[in-house]
């Protein structure tokens, strides 16, 4: 469970980018975090992951996100970056997947076994010994997700997981997200993908929560979306 309690954050004094945010994400829930550019989605993600410091406002499974608890928090929360090139920094896919496991004290043999297991789970075993800079964008995204899943996090945070993907790879990622048992928090401008994957949506604008509710309801509300610089998902606007 992820809990945010009265979170306010400002980069510059007097200019809060997040204002009094509170919500709870239950285990296994898939939540879409939507909003126009500058709404505060990325800042909120960084605060959840402890990449920005907050004071007793973010909790993962009851553990507050603060300096002392970061190793534990980062084991619980996996983060898939928008640009997979930034996430996959080791030379080969297998080494990248094993990176986090070895850092958390797993032995090489066990890490290799886990790497094989997670690649099999995502049906991308053929990527194992490939160089990260020589695989396609879709493969990089799958490998990046594999690297995060290998850590067995209780929740996954994803930043634009379908950006810059072709339709086939986009579909694969959507199917994968739907099949994951973990809690997922997804930020994206791809509202069709949010509609396909999330049961709940939180709409942010100017640092505040505008609406928090079922995805079907919020994503069908044309007036609400347009008032906050967004549009209906394409699949709904055609109906």
């Amino acid at each position: 469970m992820i809990e945010i309690r009265n979170l306010t954050y400002e980069y510059e004094p007097g200019k809060p980018v997040l204002k009094n945010i509170s919500f709870t994400v239950e285990d296994g829930e898939r939540v879409g975090l939507i909003g126009a550019n500058g709404a505060g989605k990325s800042t909120l993600m960084k605060l959840m992951l402890g990449l920005l410091e907050s004071t007793d406002a973010v909790f993962a499974d009851g553990v507050p996100v603060k300096k002392d608890t970061l190793p534990e928090i980062r084991r619980k929360l996996g983060f898939v970056l928008q640009n997979s090139d930034h996430q996959m920094f080791m030379p080969t896919v297998a080494q990248d997947i094993a990176f986090g496991l070895l850092n958390y004290g797993m032995g090489q043999t066990e890490a290799d076994r886990k790497t094989d297991e997670v690649l099999n789970q995502l049906h991308v075993s053929y990527l194992k010994d490939k160089y990260n800079h020589r695989i396609s964008g879709g493969e990089k995204r799958m490998a990046a997700i594999a690297a995060v899943l290998a850590m067995e996090p209780s929740a996954l945070l994803m930043d634009e997981p379908t950006s810059a993907l072709d339709p086939e790879n986009r579909r694969r990622i959507i199917q994968l997200i739907c099949s994951l048992p973990q809690t997922c928090i997804i930020t994206s401008h791809d509202l069709d993908m949010i509609l396909d994957t999330c049961s709940r949506v939180i709409l942010l604008d100017q640092g505040g929560i505008i609406k928090d509710g079922p995805a079907e309801t919020i994503l069908r509300d044309r007036e609400l979306l347009e008032a906050h610089h967004m549009e209906l998902p394409l699949s709904l606007s055609r109906r």
């Binding site: 980062r74 084991r75 640009n83 090139d85 930034h86 920094f89 990176f99 850092n103 958390y104 995060v148």
Partner: peptide, 22 residues
Amino acid sequence: DRAQELYAAMLLRGYNGEFPDL
């Protein structure tokens, strides 16, 4: 920008200044 994001990705997977044994 890339370097900052990359470093964040490393931190999120337990990087503590030492790469695991290669």
